[in-house]
């Protein structure tokens, strides 16, 4: 059986990229909001890390949606998903969340960068100014709703797959939680990487704050992965077959142990723990750790998507 082509495979890597980007966007927004709320407050707009998140979040979600549309067999009919709804369909509800998310995301970005935008505009476009002022007054509500939407979006990437009842590895209650947590950590990593690339201080308060959340997040992710596979194996039957097949010695087994567990979780965790002791963080350190996390999450999405479709009931 080849790793990328086998009987019963319906969804290919574009879906994995879509799930990766949607989770990453939600994660980046989540951390940008946390940074502003707990650390930066009104200084948020000139933090390179918040700026990076404000660029990454919309670009990732647009890119993801673009890939999704491109992957339809009838891309030009995409508008039908927006017009027709089905309450029992995770995809339909997810698209609804995605639309609301993008709207609120831009409102939030406008709030955070209001001063900068006002500076740039000067005396021009008074309507935009008034809109901005109005948005800033609603900032608390916008932030609250955006947090809810971001978490929904992150979980949705998992629910999309767990609704496939014919595949025991996907039809698993832990999957949405696993995708939510790994999506958040990929968002954190993308924010860090983008931030230092925008010449943010690799030893700054933002990096320390995000790294502080990252360790518990990685530990939770390892716990979830363990629960995920232990649960499958204990269920017996095709669930056990699916789990052992995925974790075995094939191509995907290597991706899992070396890529997801090794590069994605163990190395960033080790780096993070080591960094606690010695104080100074360098550009290379932050960039490499973040890249490893990103690679790990990206591989996890592909691993779950492909091995999930390998074993049916």
């Amino acid at each position: 059986m080849s790793a990328f082509h086998f009987e019963g495979l319906v969804w290919h890597w574009p879906i994995a990229i879509y799930l990766f980007l949607a989770g990453l966007s939600a994660g980046a927004v989540f951390f940008a909001i946390m940074l502003k709320h707990f650390k930066l407050a009104h200084e948020a707009w000139h933090s390179p890390f918040v700026q990076a998140a404000a660029i990454i979040a919309p670009v990732a979600v647009f890119g993801g949606l673009g890939i999704l549309v491109f992957d339809l067999t009838r891309p030009l009919d995409f508008w039908k998903i927006l017009v027709f709804y089905n309450t029992t369909s995770v995809m339909s509800m997810g698209v609804l969340v995605l639309m609301a998310y993008q709207l609120v995301l831009f409102a939030w970005i406008a709030c955070v960068f209001q001063r900068r935008i006002t500076q740039l505009l000067g005396k021009r476009l008074p309507i935009v100014q008034r809109l901005l002022n109005w948005l800033v007054k609603q900032e608390a509500a916008i932030t609250g709703i955006l947090v809810i939407l971001a978490i929904s979006l992150g979980a949705y990437t998992g629910f999309l797959l767990s609704a496939l009842i014919g595949f025991p590895l996907l039809n698993n209650p832990v999957l949405p939680l696993l995708f939510l947590i790994s999506g958040l950590s990929s968002g954190a990593a993308a924010t860090l990487l983008g931030g230092v690339l925008l010449r943010g201080n690799p030893n700054g308060v933002e990096v320390r704050f995000i790294h502080g959340i990252e360790i518990p997040l990685i530990l939770v992710e390892i716990g979830l992965l363990f629960t995920f596979f232990a649960g499958l194996i204990l269920s017996g039957g095709q669930s056990q077959v699916a789990a052992l097949n995925a974790l075995g010695f094939g191509f995907w087994g290597w991706i899992f142990w070396a890529g997801v567990i090794g590069i994605g979780l163990t190395l960033p965790l080790a780096f993070n723990l080591w960094m606690k002791v010695s104080a100074d963080r360098k550009f290379a350190y932050v960039a490499v750790t973040a890249s490893f996390s990103l690679i790990g999450v990206f591989l996890l999405r592909n691993f779950i998507l492909y091995t999930g479709q390998m074993t049916g009931t």
Partner: peptide, 26 residues
């Protein structure tokens, strides 16, 4: 007329009997 070809149904059918029609792309 309503199908956009997302293939969600194909993945969801536990009996693996759905396919994309090569001509209509639905």
């Amino acid at each position: 007329d309503r199908c956009v070809g997302c293939q969600y149904c194909i993945a969801a059918c536990p009996y693996q009997v759905r396919y994309i029609h090569p001509e209509t792309r639905t």
